[in-house]
């Protein structure tokens, strides 16, 4: 039942067209990736006449996207695990425990949100270089953790605040230490929030290009998104292979979006309503 009466259908037309406009570029790319070069030059929009994997194989092996993909997976997994661990510890302390200086520490974490990466990137690059962490996995992982930690703490703190303190008290009476409460109760109870925040952080790290460009200069350590940027020069004449490379980089995100769309949206929404 529409709450917008008579005009409702009139609005549905442009809104459907817009929905088409947000989906079509990806569909177009998938279709082009399946075409031969000749097919693409003759007609850009026609459906590929067969599902072909050759272009994808070319992009995978000759550009080295396979290697970049492994780099990305390693860095993203390590970053997300660290973010969730450090972020949930801090969120539990700030959201559930009472101690001197807690609000000052919470505000300090929030203040970091106002210093985006572009503002600190020059000195950060220097700090990383001095520590010998440029062009290493730990360096990039640390940079990602530092970048997305304030947001993670913010969300985990707001989530843990909603858990009644009676639960902790009961667990303490049962003889648990604070750490025991964290490990046996807060981590499992925090699972829905950890899932949402974890997926969001994984997307942020996976999609990043600036931090990776800055801290991973050598070709062998390149992450997938940086690898994709190098496709353009190499395959400007071979559009189907170019589209295949883009598709390889997009597939993990497509899969995550298909299955976990709600958790992603919940994470974004939680960041806004708890503010």
């Amino acid at each position: 039942m529409s709450r917008i009466r008579p005009g409702g259908w009139l609005l549905a037309v442009p809104m459907s067209l817009l929905a088409l406009a947000t989906i079509y570029p990806m569909v177009f790319t998938v279709n082009v990736a399946m075409k031969t070069r000749r097919e693409y030059i003759l007609d850009r929009f026609s459906l590929a006449d067969a599902v072909r994997w050759e272009n994808i194989a070319t992009a995978w092996s000759s550009v080295g996207l396979g290697r970049y993909l492994v780099n990305s997976v390693v860095v993203v997994v390590a970053s997300v695990v660290l973010l969730l661990l450090v972020g949930s510890m801090a969120g539990f302390a700030l959201g559930q425990l009472r101690f001197r200086g807690s609000s000052a520490l919470f505000l300090g974490c929030l203040a970091a949100l106002f210093a985006p990466f572009q503002v600190i990137m020059v000195p950060l690059a220097r700090i990383m270089a001095d520590a010998g962490l440029v062009d290493t996995y730990p360096g990039l992982v640390l940079a990602y953790v530092a970048q997305f930690l304030p947001f993670t703490i913010f969300l985990m703190t707001s989530y843990y605040r909603t858990i009644p303190t009676e639960i902790i008290d009961a667990a303490r009476i049962d003889g648990n230490s604070v750490y025991g409460v964290y490990r046996r109760i807060m981590l499992p109870l925090g699972a829905p929030a950890l899932l949402s925040v974890g997926i969001l952080n994984a997307l942020f790290c996976w999609n990043d290009v600036l931090i990776s460009l800055l801290l991973m200069p050598s070709a062998e350590h390149r992450t997938l998104m940086v690898g994709v940027t190098s496709l353009r020069g190499q395959y400007s004449a071979d559009i189907p292979t170019f589209a295949s490379g883009v598709l390889i980089a997009a597939i993990p995100v497509l899969v995550i979006y298909l299955f976990l769309q709600r958790q992603i949206a919940d994470g974004v929404a939680a960041g806004s309503t708890k503010g």
């Binding site: 039942m1 529409s2 709450r3 917008i4 409702g8 259908w9 609005l11 549905a12 809104m15 459907s16 817009l18 929905a19 088409l20 947000t22 989906i23 570029p25 990806m26 177009f28 790319t29 997307l203 996976w206 999609n207 990043d208 290009v209 998104m225 940086v226 994709v228 940027t229 496709l231 353009r232 170019f242 883009v246 980089a249 997009a250 995100v253 995550i256 979006y257 769309q261 992603i264 949206a265």
Partner: peptide, 28 residues
């Protein structure tokens, strides 16, 4: 306000937001 088809729009509109700017840029 439940425009006809309101259940479908969010999934479509939100989709590009999860893509990397690199992928979006390459497609465009």
């Amino acid at each position: 306000l439940r425009v006809p088809g309101h259940r479908l729009y969010r999934s479509a509109y939100f989709f590009p937001a999860v893509l990397s700017p690199v992928i979006v840029g390459a497609i465009f």
